[in-house]
Structure formats: C-alpha cells, structure tokens
Nucleic acid binder design. Structure first.
Length: 275
DNA sequence: CGTTTTTGACCGGCGC
DNA sequence: GCGCCGGTCAAAAACG
C-alpha cells in the first residue's frame, strides 16, 4: 500500500490514535525548557496514545496511562514565550507507542546485538511529536549528539539521528521534516532518559527517568518560542489559566498527513490492520 | 583542545 | 543471491 493511500484514511488514524491539542501563547523571551519548567513541572508524557482498533481491545493499562497523563494538571501549565515571530505558532502533535511494534527500530539493535530470530525483543518505547518550527533540532533541555543524517525514501528531507550525550543514557531521537508541511518538524524519541535533565541551571526538574524524554520533549523546545500543541486536551484539567489555551481534538488528520517518521510509526503500529 | 557536526562507508534486514 | 533501505559508525572538519 502506498503511503498516500494509507495516510489518506484519516478515519483509520483517528481510530488508532489519541492525541491532544493545546495552544499556548507566547510572550517575550526565548525560553529553554528550563524557563518552562521553572514555573511548571514537566509534562508527563502520554505513555500510550496509540490505541489499537482491534475489536478485542479492552483498554488495558494503556488507558490508565493515558488517563494519568491526560488528567495531569501539569500539562495545562506549560508556558512559553518568544521574541521570534517565526516561532510564535509552534505546533505539536504527539503519538506514543508503548513498547513499539515497529520493525525498523529493531534493525540496528540486531546489528548491535544479534538476537535469535524467533526471540521476542524488548522494544524501546517511542514517542513522536510534530512541531512547527524553523529549527530542526529543538532544545528539550537535554544534550544531544548528532550521529547521523540519512536521506530516506519516504521523505525528500533528510532524517537526522541524535543520541543523548549522557554516558549512561542511550536515548535516541530522530528528527525530520514533514513532507506535507516542511515547516513542521517531526521528532521521534526512542527510549527514555535514565537520568535527570543534565542541564538544569535552576535545579532538577524532578522528572522520572521513565518520562524524562517525553517531558523534556513536550515542555521544552527552548529553541523556539510559543507553540501550538496539537493533540487531545479535552481530558486535561487546567489549573493554570493564566495561559491562554485552545484545546481540541483534531490532530489525527494532521498526523496522518505526515509521511515521514510518523508514517513510519503509524504504519508500523497499524500494520496488522492495514495489511 | 574538547566537543559537536558532517558525511561516506558499512552493516543487517527484508523483499524480490 | 542480490539490491534496496534504514540505521550506525567513525574519521575528518568545524566550532566554541
């Protein structure tokens, strides 16, 4: 199936994905994640936002994860500010895959650690989001080292590969631009940080290792200013209404328009249904 | 001078 | 078996 065909099925994606929307206004400075976190605890990630469409699906722990996160008041308290008009309208969509079911991710692992063919492999949790930004590599508060850049067939834009520079942390992320809208950066985190945010000049942000990647990702992006976060938000409680917020369900179609990393994730996740 | 980025080579999986 | 593809390595260059 062609990606276009696949992605054209917005309803299918709607059925498979929960996401949240969150519009945040910007103000004055050019913030890092620390600015954001200074007044707002880091956003816990949606641990599992990809919902299988299987008729037998019964909302297991994944839902509780979703609820835990969506119900978090912290989510609504993210603020950002910017002097850069270009960054005033940042847009983010999120997908999370709980122990993802991709195959591509396994490839390099197999390279590093050959595993018996029939042996199930623990997969790193993945979390992707889309950010409307001129900057490819958003500052999420962690230090990253670029270890590769690759032209991929599914996108005219190169995909960049980053690894967390902290020695004990093997977290990786991939960054590429959406071919649907080149102004949108698709960032995919693979795994989780095993350490707190290393560059927290104002103190440790108190992020659990399991969630640091996501929290940093969502709350951060200090390279850019105010953003519009795309994803579900109707489940979020808001206890910080000093921020102007717009929230709505509607990013499934938005996600579905990306043919790069997201399609990679989505198609792989829904592969059984699509095939 | 240490760190990061660039970029071509290399590797393994997969489909034909 | 072969070629394509995505992901990683690593040396050199660039940067601060």
């Amino acid at each position: 199936m062609d990606y276009l065909d696949l992605l054209d099925s917005s309803t299918m994606f709607g059925a498979h994905l929960l996401d949240y929307n969150n519009t945040i206004t910007s103000s004055s400075t050019y913030p890092s994640i620390f600015d954001l976190l200074q007044t707002t605890p880091v956003l816990p990630p949606p641990h599992f936002l990809a919902i299988p469409s299987s008729p037998t699906f019964t909302f297991p722990e994944s839902l509780s994860d979703v609820i835990d996160i969506l119900a978090s008041p912290n989510l609504s308290s993210i603020s950002s500010s910017s002097t850069e008009a270009a960054d005033d309208n940042q847009q983010i969509s999120t997908i999370n895959q709980h122990h993802g079911e991709e195959q591509d991710q396994d490839k390099y692992k197999k390279q590093l650690k050959p595993i018996k063919k029939n042996q199930k492999r623990e997969r790193e949790p993945r979390f992707a989001f889309m950010t409307k930004s001129d900057i490819d590599h958003l500052d999420d508060g962690f230090r990253w080292r670029k270890y590769g850049q690759k032209k991929v067939k599914s996108s005219p834009f190169p995909r960049s590969y980053y690894r967390c520079t902290t020695a004990s942390c093997g977290l990786k992320k991939r960054v590429e631009r959406s071919i649907q809208d080149p102004s949108i950066v698709v960032t995919t985190y693979e795994g989780t940080h095993t350490h707190p945010c290393p560059a927290t000049p104002r103190g440790y942000v108190g992020v659990l290792p399991r969630t640091t990647a996501y929290g940093g990702a969502i709350g951060g992006g200090g390279d850019s200013g105010g953003r519009t976060y795309y994803g579900d938000s109707s489940l979020f409680s808001t206890n910080n209404n000093s921020l102007q917020e717009k929230r709505f369900w509607n990013s499934s179609s938005y996600l579905a328009k990306d043919y790069g990393l997201l399609q990679d994730m989505v198609s792989s996740h829904t592969g059984a249904d699509v095939a």
